[in-house]
Structure formats: C-alpha cells, structure tokens
C-alpha cells in the first residue's frame, strides 16, 4: 500500500461511504481492523501501475486522477474520481497488480480496506461476499461502458 500523508483506523459503518450503505454492520465490523482512513497530499500517488493491488479505496474527499503513462507520450488522465466513488478492483484478480496510476489531484481522503482481509471476508462470508461483488459489478460495468464511448472519440469533428 502506498505511503499516505496521514492514516488512522476507521470504524466502518454503512454510513461511512455510499458503497457500504447496504452492508450488514457485522460484516463491516469484521473488516474494521483492516480499514484505515488515509489522507493523500496533492500529487501523491495512491497506487502505481504494476504495484501490488493491496487495497480497496472508498473516496471521501478530494479528487483522484487515473493516469496512463507510456514512454512515447506525456502522462494522460483518462478519468477522475471524487467523493462517494470507489477506486481499484485489481486486488480481486489473481495477479493482484494495479494496471494504472492513481494520483491525488488535490488533497484526498479515503477509507482504504486491506485487500487480503477483504478477500478473506468475501470467502468466509459468501452471502456478504456476493453482496459486495454485486455492488461492485455495476460500477465496473458502467466504467467499461463509459470507456467504450470514450474510445469512439465522439467529440472529434
């Protein structure tokens, strides 16, 4: 997990973040020891392409730019995320590696759930695990749909 300017334990509750709204408090209490509220300074990276995907980010405040860096062109921001949105699902996939960079555009605060604990909780509590994945899947689907439209370059004349 990347270094953050500050971090402190976070007592998870359904009211902590819109993504958590429909989860049972006992499931969230079980994850509480693996959750931290972290603050990232402007221009600090929350995660880096190729790094270990070791956390799930629930954004509370600020703005995060998802960036792609290639050797032949300047770093490109392809999406920004803000309060109420979530960041990162590569921790669900076997390689457990990030596939892009995420940079705080301005000071950003997030709840970060440890990926290993989250995977364990999903395995140990299948009903909650299905609920978790059912909550995450529409977000992934919407971002995929948006990316498809962006690929069309619809605003080019």
């Amino acid at each position: 997990m990347s270094a953050a300017r500050s971090s402190r334990p976070h007592a998870l509750a359904p009211s902590s973040h819109p993504f958590l709204r429909d989860f049972d408090p006992p499931f969230l209490h079980g994850l509480a020891p693996a959750s931290q509220e972290r603050t990232f300074a402007a221009d600090e990276y929350l995660l880096r392409d190729g790094g270990e995907a070791d956390g799930f980010y629930l954004l509370l405040h600020g703005k995060v730019a998802l960036e792609i860096a290639t050797p032949e062109r300047p770093r490109l921001t392809i999406q920004t995320l803000g309060p109420g949105e979530v960041l990162g699902w590569s921790w669900l996939l076997p390689s457990h590696r990030w596939h892009l960079d995420a940079r705080a555009v301005k000071e950003t605060r997030a709840i970060v759930l440890e990926a290993a604990a989250l995977r364990h909780a999903i395995d140990a509590h299948p009903r909650d695990g299905v609920r978790f994945l059912t909550a995450l899947l529409p977000i992934i689907g919407q971002r995929l749909a948006n990316t498809r439209i962006q690929l069309l370059d619809i605003h080019r004349g």
Binding site: P74, R75, L76, T77, T80, K106, N146, Q150, H155
Partner: peptide, 23 residues
C-alpha cells in the same frame, strides 16, 4: 466541465458527461 482525456495541467474532471448525472 469534464473532458475525455487531459494532461497533468488540467485540474477539472475527466470522464463522460453521464458520470456527473448521478450526483
């Protein structure tokens, strides 16, 4: 305002207009 792609000198939003509708 949101754009489809931007460099680091852009501090606004990046993404589709539809992403701004839920909130």
């Amino acid at each position: 305002t949101t754009v489809d792609a931007a460099g680091r000198d852009w501090y606004g939003d990046v993404g589709l207009v539809t992403a701004r509708i839920p909130d």
